[in-house]
Amino acid sequence: MKAKFFAVFRAAFLMAGLLVPLAASAQWPPPPMATPNDQRNALNHMRTQLNLFQNATRTASNFGAQGAGNLDGQFQETRNVYHGFLQTLTPQQRDRGANSLAELDSGFDILGEAFTYYQNDLAAGRPANAALRDLCKLLSQGMRMWSQEFNKTCSALRVGLG
């Protein structure tokens, strides 16, 4: 019984050994390197999203209590689009711009803290309209600064220029 169990076990082990290379070869090939055109498209997408975000900061107060939620949604979307943009950079661009790209990431983290401050403001009894007004102002101006740095970084890294 014991010998039979080990025989089955050994057979399963061998099968697994045979299947591993097959499984490995069935993996997706590495994604193709993004072209300068891909980078330009990603850059345009990012700029469009940054404009949408600025619009959201202008209109948030029209949506009352939902305004902050809408802004948060646009903020997350902007971050997602930025991460998509990063995927189009070449390893050389990522390496050369490592510091500035890391700072742009940190900038997002810091701007994101504005939502925590907003929630804390409400919890501390600050009038909701004043808290939302400041949230919009902070995000609008902060994201404008972020955009300037983003543009500077893209120029220095010659994004989309090949």
Binding site: A102, D105, G107, I110, A114, G142, M145, W146
Partner: peptide
């Protein structure tokens, strides 16, 4: 509000230096 906005750059810098450590200055 002004402080919150104007400090984004320096805070991002400090955070990045922490995150990247020596690699930041190697650059």
């Amino acid at each position: 509000t002004r402080l919150q906005v104007q400090s984004v750059t320096i805070r991002a810098r400090a955070q990045t230096i922490q995150a990247r450590g020596d690699a930041y200055f190697r650059d």
